[in-house]
C-alpha cells in the first residue's frame, strides 16, 4: 500500500510579481514501511517536497494523497488532525519549545490530541523513547542547556512519540556525531521495522543513503531518479 502518492504536483512561489517554480510536475509513490531519502543539490526542491508530503504546505497544482486521502479538499482543521495523527517531524533547526524541558517537549505532541493510552503507559513510552535517543539523564533539562546533537535527539524522540505512520526528517543527522548518528538511524530503522513506520529524509549523509531502501533524486524541481519504490 502506498502511504504517499503524488501526481503531477507543481509548487510555485511568488517573489513579488515573479512566479518561481520550485517543483515542476512531480509524480512519485512511497509505500508503507519505506525508508526513503530525498537527495539533490540545494535549491532542487527537497524541502518543498518534504513540506508538501508533510501537509504543512499545499501544492499549486496536482494531486497529493497521504495514506490514501486526497488532501485537496481538506480544511485547515482536518489537515492539522491528519498531521497530528499520521505524521512526525524532525526539523533541521530542531524547533524545540524553549520553555519546556526534554520530557515535556517529547510529551507535547501527545497533549495536542486525545489520550490513547493510560497516563502510566504514556509516561513509560515517553521514558522509553527518551532512553532510546540517549537522553535518559537529561529529562529535566531545557533545550538551551543541551548541545545541538542532544537537541536533535529530543526532536527525534518527539517525532516518534505519537507512533506516526510517516516521519519526515530534514537533515536529521546533520548535527550529530557519527556514533550517535548510527544509533539514531538504527533506532529509526528498528522502529521502521517494528511499527512499519515510513521514514522520509532529506539528507546528504552517506550513512543514511547507504541504509535507505531507495533514494529519490531531485534536480531543479524535477525527479531524475527513484520516483517509485
Amino acid at each position: 500500500m502506498n502511504v504517499v502518492e503524488l501526481k503531477e504536483v507543481h509548487k510555485d512561489y511568488s517573489l513579488g510579481k515573479v512566479n518561481v517554480p520550485a517543483l515542476k510536475g512531480i509524480s512519485l509513490t512511497i509505500g508503507e514501511g519505506d525508508f526513503v531519502s530525498v537527495a539533490g543539490p540545494s535549491g532542487s526542491g527537497k524541502t518543498t517536497l518534504l513540506n508538501l508530503i508533510g501537509c504543512i504546505d499545499r501544492p499549486t497544482r496536482g494531486e497529493l494523497h497521504i495514506t490514501g486521502q486526497n488532501l485537496e479538499r481538506l480544511r485547515d482543521r482536518e489537515l492539522t488532525e491528519l498531521r497530528h495523527r499520521t505524521l512526525g517531524f524532525i526539523f533541521q533547526t530542531f524547533n524545540l519549545i524553549p520553555v519546556l524541558n526534554v520530557y515535556e517537549n517529547v510529551e507535547f505532541p501527545l497533549l495536542l490530541g486525545k489520550r490513547k493510552q493510560s497516563r502510566k503507559e504514556e509516561k513509560e513510552w515517553i521514558d522509553h523513547i527518551i532512553n532510546e535517543v540517549g537522553l535518559g539523564d537529561r529529562k529535566k533539562h531545557r533545550p538551551n542547556e543541551l548541545s545541538g546533537g542532544q537537541r536533535q535527539r529530543v526532536a527525534i524522540a518527539r517525532a516518534l512519540v505519537t507512533r506516526p505512520q510517516i516521519v519526515l526528517a530534514d537533515e536529521p543527522t546533520a548535527n550529530l556525531d557519527s556514533a550517535t548518528s548510527e544509533r539514531i538511524i538504527e533506532l529509526m530503522k528498528k522502529i521502521n521495522e517494528e511499527q512499519k513506520t515510513t521514514f522520509i529524509f532529506s539528507t546528504h549523509d552517506p550513512m543514511i543513503v547507504d541504509m535507505v531502501d531507495h533514494v529519490i533524486r531531485l534536480h531543479d524541481g524535477v525527479i531524475i531518479s527513484g520516483s517509485t519504490s
Binding site: I56, D76, T80, R83, I97
Partner: peptide, 16 residues
C-alpha cells in the same frame, strides 16, 4: 513565528 509554526506542524489547532 517558528515556534508557533512548529506547534501547528505537530498538530496544534488554531484554538490551541
Amino acid at each position: 513565528t517558528g515556534e508557533i509554526g512548529t506547534m501547528r506542524a505537530m498538530g496544534a489547532q488554531k484554538g490551541f
